[in-house]
Amino acid sequence: MTDLIYEPDKNRFRMPTPAGDAIVSIRWEGDVMVLPHAEVPSALRGTGAGAKLAKGVFEQIEAMGVKARPTCPFLLKVAKSDPRWQNLFGV
């Protein structure tokens, strides 16, 4: 996987790609990391880059051991597609 960078000072995860950065924005509600938005460069839409980004972010959240809640419809769709992520997020 392309390197995923957690940038807490910018409230996001960033995945550099040749077409530009793919991002998942975050915000904190108490001790819960909320994931309201994911975006990939338009040239990568439909290529699986968004799912790759989402899974990378989910793996990083899992490794961080923090509570998280995806609210972005795309991230929710990816989370619901795999029992591992269903369990992580309770969806």
Results as ranks from 00 to 15, higher is better:
Met1Arg: 09
Asp3Tyr: 01
Asp3Asn: 13
Tyr6Lys: 13
Pro8Lys: 12
Pro8Ser: 12
Asp9Met: 06
Asp9Lys: 09
Lys10Ala: 15
Asn11Met: 12
Arg12Phe: 04
Phe13Ala: 05
Arg14Ala: 08
Arg14Glu: 10
Arg14Trp: 03
Met15Ala: 05
Thr17Cys: 11
Thr17His: 11
Thr17Gly: 07
Pro18Asn: 12
Ala19Cys: 11
Ala19Phe: 10
Ala19Leu: 03
Gly20Trp: 09
Asp21Thr: 05
Asp21Phe: 08
Ala22Cys: 06
Ser25Arg: 08
Ile26Ala: 01
Ile26Val: 13
Arg27Leu: 10
Arg27Ser: 07
Arg27Gln: 11
Arg27Pro: 00
Trp28Val: 01
Trp28Cys: 03
Gly30Leu: 05
Asp31Gly: 13
Asp31Glu: 15
Asp31His: 13
Val32Tyr: 08
Val32Met: 12
Met33Pro: 00
Met33Val: 09
Val34Pro: 01
Leu35Gln: 00
Leu35Tyr: 00
Leu35Pro: 00
Leu35Trp: 00
Leu35Phe: 01
Pro36Asn: 12
Pro36Ile: 06
His37Asp: 01
His37Ser: 04
His37Pro: 02
Ala38Ile: 02
Glu39Arg: 06
Glu39Phe: 06
Glu39Ala: 12
Val40Gly: 02
Val40Ala: 07
Val40Pro: 02
Pro41Lys: 10
Pro41Glu: 08
Pro41Cys: 13
Ala43Asp: 13
Leu44Arg: 05
Leu44Lys: 07
Gly46Met: 07
Gly48Thr: 14
Ala49Tyr: 10
Ala49Gln: 14
Gly50Ser: 08
Lys52Glu: 14
Lys52Leu: 15
Leu53Ala: 03
Leu53Tyr: 01
Leu53Val: 04
Ala54Asn: 09
Lys55Pro: 03
Gly56Trp: 01
Phe58Asp: 00
Phe58Thr: 00
Phe58Ala: 00
Glu59Cys: 07
Glu59Tyr: 08
Ile61Met: 01
Ile61Asp: 00
Ala63Ser: 14
Met64Ser: 13
Met64Ile: 06
Gly65Trp: 06
Gly65Ile: 04
Val66Arg: 13
Lys67Thr: 05
Lys67Ile: 02
Lys67Val: 01
Lys67Ser: 13
Ala68His: 10
Pro70Ile: 01
Pro70Leu: 00
Thr71Pro: 07
Cys72Val: 08
Cys72Ser: 07
Pro73Trp: 07
Pro73Gln: 13
Pro73Arg: 06
Phe74Cys: 03
Leu75Trp: 02
Leu75Lys: 02
Leu76Asn: 10
Leu76Asp: 03
Lys77Cys: 03
Val78Ile: 15
Val78Asn: 01
Val78Lys: 00
Ala79Pro: 03
Ala79Gln: 02
Lys80Thr: 11
Lys80Pro: 03
Lys80Phe: 10
Ser81Met: 02
Ser81Glu: 13
Ser81Arg: 03
Asp82Cys: 15
Pro83Arg: 02
Pro83Leu: 06
Arg84Val: 07
Arg84Asn: 08
Arg84Gly: 08
Trp85Pro: 02
Trp85Lys: 05
Gln86Val: 15
Leu88Cys: 12
Phe89Ser: 10
Phe89Trp: 09
Gly90Met: 04
Val91Thr: 15
Val91Ser: 14
Val91Ile: 15
